[in-house]
Amino acid sequence: MISRGSAALLAVGLLLTIGLPGIASATVAHNASTPTGDADLVVVMKSERELYLYRNGLIIAQYPIALGLRPIGTKQMRGDDKTPIGAYTLDWRNPNSDFHRSIHISYPDPSDREHAAALGVAPGNNIMIHGQPDYDNRPRTGDWTHGCIAVSNRAINQIWVRVPDGTPIHIYP
Score class of each variant (00 low, 15 high):
Q76K: 11
G86N: 12
L67Q: 07
Q76E: 11
I59C: 02
L69H: 06
M77N: 02
T89Q: 13
L69Q: 11
I60N: 03
D81A: 14
A66Y: 01
G57W: 01
K82H: 14
R55C: 02
Y63K: 04
D80G: 03
G79L: 07
Y63G: 01
A61I: 02
I60F: 08
G79A: 09
Y63F: 15
Y63S: 03
I85H: 03
T83G: 06
P71L: 06
L58N: 12
Q62K: 15
R55Q: 14
I65D: 05
Q76Y: 09
R78T: 12
G68W: 00
D91Y: 13
P71T: 08
G68V: 03
P64D: 11
A61Y: 03
A87M: 07
I65H: 01
M77H: 09
I72K: 13
P84I: 09
L58C: 07
G68N: 01
Q76C: 10
A66R: 10
R78A: 14
M77Y: 04
R55I: 09
I72Y: 12
I85W: 04
L67N: 03
P64Y: 09
N56G: 15
R70G: 00
K82E: 10
D81H: 11
Y54Q: 04
L90M: 15
D80Q: 05
Y88A: 05
Y54C: 01
P64E: 10
N56A: 14
G86C: 10
I72G: 04
A66D: 07
Q62T: 14
Y63H: 14
T74R: 12
K82Q: 06
D80V: 03
L69F: 01
G57A: 09
G57R: 03
Q62M: 13
I85A: 08
Y63I: 03
A87G: 11
K75F: 06
K82P: 00
N56E: 15
L67R: 04
L58S: 15
D81N: 13
D80M: 02
I85L: 10
I60H: 09
G68E: 00
G68L: 00
I85S: 07
D80P: 02
A66G: 13
P64G: 13
Q76R: 13
R78E: 12
R78P: 00
I59K: 12
L90D: 05
L58Q: 15
I65A: 04
P64C: 11
P84T: 04
R55E: 11
D81V: 00
I60M: 06
L90C: 08
Y63Q: 03
A61Q: 05
L69C: 01
N56L: 08
G79P: 12
